[in-house]
Amino acid sequence: MKVLGLESSCDETGIAIYEVETGVIQQRLYSQIECHREYGGVVPELASRDHVVKAAPMIIDLLQQNGGVHSLDGIVYTRGPGLMGALMVGACIARALAWALDKPVLGVHHMEGHLLAPMLSEDKPEFPFVALLVSGGHTMLVDVEAVGEYKILGESLDDAVGEAFDKTAKLLGLPYPGGPELAQLASTVSATDLVFPRPMVDRPGLDFSFSGLKTFALNTMHKLTPLSDQNRAEIAFAFEQAVVDTLQIKCQRALKQTGYRRLVVAGGVGANRTLRKRLQQMSAKLQTRVYFPALEYCTDNGAMIAYAGGLRMAAGQRDENVTDVLPRWSLETLQRLN
């Protein structure tokens, strides 16, 4: 089974071809970051406009390099969650392609794509595992018993981690999306007297809250004004430490609660080196294992959608007469794959 996968839920246009039996995956990715930078955030209408221009050339190129359109057995695409207009572009291209080819089509859950992305590595985790999903739009801990069997253990009550990184970076005057820039700035110092709170760690449960950290950063800046470069770097450092500590404490709790011995980290913030290092250290101590997707599969991409969709399609799943997209869609409603 060879499937074409389309991802267009936010500001990345991702196209991939995945062959289920051989595991061979090829992908093309276009990031719209530049287009949204001057607006300081993703503008949904511009994202949709860009998808409709960028998707087709990548599809054509990928098909040309990989056996042509008739070598496909099916088409999969991100049906949600995400931006309505952006999702619509990928969905329409995918369904029309399937219609034209008389081939099956299937809508994929974007977060399931992220959850399963570590499966694209040589060293794949076995089920069950705890997944920490940390991206620009989501922060959640998920109990992954099997493909499609997901229970949300905890999630952010306000800002997503990536969002908190981006907003704090913006306060520091860093260009959008500031997450990686803030991390870079933080890496220039190794200690500070500034202490940021660790939100919600003193309370039981696995939910997160990150909006307070951004406010704390703002108040700290006001106190220190005028800010020196050293101040800025220390604020970035203290902020990152607080986020990483909080995430690590909750991950540890989730492993204890489920009794699982594997932790999978997915989503754009999974690229953060400090977080990676901290979770590695925790795993060594707890004698558990932590898995990270390859960097190219961390942020939004087509490969993870082609993979998740390919698995489901190979198991016989199809969409009959699905004509909508789902900007909001709970992971827990997905069908278990056997």
Binding site: V52, A56, C92, A96, L97, W99, A100
Partner: peptide, 8 residues
Amino acid sequence: STAQGISI
């Protein structure tokens, strides 16, 4: 986008 899918 539907036209693109059909065209390809």
